[in-house]
Simulated assay, not measured.
Amino acid sequence: MLTIRMNEAAASTLRPLATVDLPPAVPSLSQGLRDKFTRGLTYNEGAWIFTEHVGQWAGAPASASAAIAKMGWQDLSGYEWNVNAFHLEDYAPIQVENLDGQPQISREDQALVLRLGLVVADSVFALIRALPEPVPVRCVISANDTCVVFRFHQIRPGDEWIDGTLRNRNDPDMIVVADRHP
């Protein structure tokens, strides 16, 4: 079962795209993203991470349990949340402006990259479905005017914290959450 939820900021950004006569363009995966998915996933003590991300945290130990202890991550979901994170704008066909030393992404480009995030989520779901024992997975795309971050983690009991994030009307970030249960 697939469930997609988003906060009001994301809905209001994506909504106008659905009312245009022509459907919005769905970005395709860049070569860098295709390479990430070709390399697949690595299993580490109960956690699934992008193989390409193994060892990316220079200060974190290789084992999930040791990394959780050293980095202060709460649990396996927190480990996956951090290790699987990457900036989607690095893989998107958009122009990131530099304003006073800060990256700036236009609202239109944020919407485009949010849609790219859903394509990336679908690719993560395909990797998970191909596992011998597929697990429930949550993909989270958060966008603002400086970056768009993609993350995923296995859904485990107690992971309901995202519901509060979606209801926070004071958060200016656009947040899209896609859950897939086998």
Rank of each mutant, 00 (worst) to 15 (best):
Ile94Asn: 09
Arg39Leu: 15
Asp35Met: 04
Glu108Pro: 02
Thr19Tyr: 15
Arg15Thr: 08
Asn144Gly: 13
Arg5Tyr: 05
Asn84Phe: 05
Ile128Met: 09
Val113His: 04
His87Cys: 12
Trp81Asp: 14
Gln104Tyr: 13
Arg34Gln: 08
Thr42Ser: 14
Glu8Gly: 02
Arg138Glu: 05
Trp57Thr: 01
Ile49Lys: 05
Asp122Leu: 07
Leu33Gln: 11
Val113Ile: 12
Pro27Arg: 10
Gln154Arg: 10
Arg39Glu: 10
Leu114Phe: 05
Tyr91Met: 04
Val113Ser: 07
Ile4Pro: 01
Gln74Phe: 12
Leu29His: 09
Arg107Glu: 14
Val119Gln: 01
Thr42Ile: 03
Lys70Thr: 15
Gly40Met: 02
Ser123Ala: 13
Val120His: 05
Ala18Cys: 15
Arg129Pro: 10
Asp179Met: 12
Asp109Val: 02
Pro134Cys: 11
Ala18Arg: 12
Ile128Leu: 11
Val149Met: 14
Arg34Lys: 13
Phe125Ile: 12
Asn170Val: 03
Asn168Leu: 04
Arg138Ala: 02
Arg115Asn: 04
Arg129Lys: 14
Gly164Cys: 03
Val176Lys: 00
His181Cys: 05
Trp81Pro: 13
Thr51Ala: 14
Glu52Leu: 03
His53Asp: 11
Gly40Pro: 11
Pro93Asp: 14
Val137Pro: 05
Ala69Glu: 14
Gln95Ser: 11
Pro182Met: 06
Glu89Trp: 06
Thr165Pro: 01
Ile141Arg: 01
Val124Gly: 12
Pro134Lys: 06
Ile68Glu: 06
Gln74Arg: 13
Ala69Thr: 13
Ile49Glu: 15
Ile128Cys: 09
Asp159Met: 10
Pro132Val: 07
Ser12Thr: 13
Ile105Arg: 02
Asp159Lys: 13
Ala69His: 08
Gly72Glu: 08
Ser106Cys: 13
Gln110Cys: 10
Asp122Cys: 15
His87Asp: 13
Leu76Gln: 08
Ala11Ser: 15
Ala130Lys: 01
Gln74Pro: 12
Gly158Ser: 10
Ala58Cys: 07
Ala58Gln: 11
Tyr79Asn: 00
Ile141Trp: 07
Ile141Leu: 05
Asp163Gly: 03
Arg129Cys: 14
Asp159Pro: 05
Glu45Phe: 07
Ala62Met: 12
Ala178Ser: 14
Tyr79Gln: 06
Thr165Met: 11
Asp173Ile: 02
Thr42Asp: 03
Val176Pro: 03
Leu33Gly: 04
Arg180Asn: 11
Val20Asn: 14
Ala9Phe: 05
Cys139His: 00
Glu45Gly: 04
Ala121Asp: 02
Leu33Arg: 01
Ile141Gln: 08
Val20Ser: 15
Pro134Trp: 06
Arg34Tyr: 00
Asn144His: 07
Pro134Ile: 03
Asp171Ala: 08
Thr146Gly: 03
Pro103Ile: 05
Asp75Met: 10
Ala60Thr: 06
Ile94Ala: 09
Ser106Phe: 10
Lys70Gln: 10
Arg151Val: 12
Ala69Ser: 07
Arg107Gly: 00
Phe125Arg: 15
Ala11Lys: 12
Val140Gln: 08
His153Tyr: 09
Leu112Ser: 13
Ile175Cys: 08
Val120Glu: 03
Met6Arg: 15
Asp75Thr: 03
Ile155Ser: 04
Ser63Phe: 02
Gln74His: 08
Val177Asn: 03
Gln74Leu: 01
Gly40Glu: 08
Arg151Leu: 04
Leu41Asn: 02
Arg115Ala: 03
Pro61His: 02
